[in-house]
Design a binder for these strands. Structure first.
Lengths: 211, 211
DNA sequence: GGGCGCATCGCCCGTTCGGGCGATTGCCTT
DNA sequence: AAGGCAATCGCCCGAACGGGCGATGCGCCC
């Protein structure tokens, strides 16, 4: 079996194919061993508690409790947890959020075996690992002006086809205030109208399908 | 090595982890053998020609030539090609398009090993394989009113923040015609305004980020 | 303490949007 | 040949939108 000095890994991904792929890749390295797998955030928390892995390898996007929530919950329960996040899509709001939420690293699923193993070792050693390409993206994202919580709510109203008045009612504020928010949103998102703003919302991960 | 009666498989996916996962899963079955892998549509065509696989296992979403285009090209070059499409996201316009484009089956990456192997055998035998859940979705999608090509173009104009007049200019038609298209789009997408229409566009896969 | 961002509220006004009535020309399928 | 659908064009109009000028209070950070 695994040597006592092995880095113990917990895999979290809702796609069994990906889990098996990761397990296959990692099993090739003698210093690594997959001690548990989970299909969603809730299971991940359980398995983490029961199996105490050294490193968690987790997908960002999952049904139920998403990867980000799971990450936060994990960090809250065990601040020392070393978590390496995996993602399918490169352009993503989530990258930044994950880093802020305490991820030790961030990888795309297109990584080579080598890079993956290197990242795991690095993270296990207490370091962090973010690919260069993503780091550059991060710098761009950081420069982007963030929408406030309220503005997100207004943007969500727009996406549902509500008029300014409707949004005002649903948020219990005046229509004029909504217009002020809309104006701010259009500026921050550099959009000409609400339709483009909604599109930008989807592109930047502020809005997403199925929510 | 593989037995002569093995089903020869070509894997196509831009994520190496997924390719390795599939390879690992399939290698467990004696009747299956992965004879080639490709990272994108163009490579897939090459490999198909050179290795003549019995079944192609291909991701829908890929950089460069997408999976759907690759599927069409493949079917055009070799009408008898048996192609099983893989997808990450369940709710997707692509499912229907893939079937129409001649895919023999459609699977989510969350499939179990068993189901995957069953699907491959079924497809190799000349049958088709679509999971029940997806089939139900298909029925829904079929009922949904389709946007015409022109309407998609207009919707794309909306998503870019163009006014009716701007769209008219960019398509070299009259503003009134654009309004007619917009009206039709709002009806078909059951949207109150263009902002909601754009949102529905993203939700239904008519629009997507990064295009 | 002063600045900055956020959330809230006010009015005016021109432009755009979306709905309601039309219409004709093609193409494809039945 | 008939019917349906897509694409094109027409006018009227009320309501919504987005921009421009404001304003006040609150909390946070330097």
């Amino acid at each position: 079996m695994a040597q006592p000095s092995c880095i113990r890994i917990l895999l979290v991904d809702d796609h069994s194919v990906v889990r098996m792929g990761l397990a296959a890749v990692l099993s090739l390295d003698e210093g690594l061993t997959v001690v548990a797998e989970a299909e969603d955030g809730a299971q991940a928390l359980e398995k983490f508690r029961s199996d105490k892995p050294d490193v968690v390898l987790m997908d960002v996007r999952m049904p139920g409790m998403g990867g980000l929530e799971a990450l936060r919950a994990l960090r809250a329960a065990a601040p020392g947890a070393r978590v390496l996040m995996l993602t399918t899509s490169e352009l993503d709001e989530d990258v930044q959020r994950a880093i802020e939420a305490g991820a030790a690293g961030y990888l795309q699923k297109s990584v080579t075996r080598d890079e993956l193993v290197r990242a795991i070792r690095r993270v296990h050693a207490g370091g962090s690992y973010v690919p260069e390409a993503l780091e550059r993206r991060l710098a761009q994202l950081a420069k982007r002006r963030h929408l406030s919580h309220r503005e997100i709510e207004v943007l969500d109203g727009m996406r549902r086809g509500l008029s300014n008045r409707d949004i005002a009612v649903s948020l219990s504020i005046s229509e004029h205030t909504v217009k002020a928010h809309v104006k701010a949103i259009l500026q921050k998102l550099e959009s000409a109208d609400r339709a483009e703003a909604v599109a930008r919302g989807f592109e930047q991960g502020l809005l997403r399908v199925g929510e």
